[in-house]
């Protein structure tokens, strides 16, 4: 949405156009030169020169992400693969975007009792605040799949269902690469099976 802003009167200097164009070019050129000097000096071994800016060639080259980044949700599973979630609806209650939709059903084991039969998250509405993860008393909903590149052609396509949420695996973060090393595409290039399924 365009936010209307009050227009500033241009000064004479700005109105003659060319001086401002050259000022802009000068800024770009300054960044280019400064970064080139920094990269060259560091290459020559001057380690106390500040780092130069880096451009990632996304999507071929993937930027490392922090392990605590809130990414697409998943629902943890019990040893038998059933959802660990007990449909307490805490996440649904706390969600500021009201984008979690839970319908509860009976679990055959009276010691578990309650299980979601529908659990939808509308990612089109989700603001990735992570409150749902905070609120969960069962540690069942997590935002650690490492998936952040998702899009859909329809609003319905943005809805994650119970099956999808259960199928998600946690991102197997190996280490958090620093910018000095070559970026490690690991977590997103391919996901590995979870080592031990979560159990209650």
């Amino acid at each position: 949405m365009r936010i209307p802003q009050s227009e500033k009167e241009l000064t004479f200097w700005e109105r003659i156009y060319f001086p401002e164009v050259f000022r802009g070019l000068a800024i770009t050129a300054k960044h280019f030169v400064v970064n080139m000097i920094r990269h060259t000096l560091r290459l020559l071994g001057f380690k106390n020169v500040p780092k130069g800016a880096v451009t990632y060639q996304y999507p071929e080259e993937i930027r490392p992400i922090s392990t605590r980044l809130r990414t697409m949700h998943r629902l943890a599973r019990r040893a038998d693969g059933s959802p660990r979630c007990v449909a307490c609806m805490m996440c649904e209650t706390v969600c500021p975007a009201s984008c979690i939709y839970i319908v509860a059903g009976e679990h055959p084991d009276p010691n578990i009792e309650k299980v979601p039969i529908r659990f939808d998250i509308d990612l089109g509405k989700c603001i990735f605040c992570g409150y749902c993860v905070e609120a969960c008393p069962e540690d069942a909903i997590r935002m650690d799949t490492g998936i952040y590149n998702f899009a859909a052609y329809t609003r319905e396509g943005m809805v994650l269902t119970l099956e999808e949420l259960l199928a998600h695996e946690p991102a197997p973060y190996v280490s958090v690469p620093t910018q000095d090393k070559a970026p490690d595409p690991g977590p997103l290039a391919k996901s590995q099976p979870v080592s031990a399924p979560a159990s209650a």
Binding site: V86, C88, M90
Partner: peptide, 9 residues
């Protein structure tokens, strides 16, 4: 302390 699955909660 079944509160998550208890209807009385």
């Amino acid at each position: 302390l079944d509160c998550p699955v208890c209807d009385q909660a």
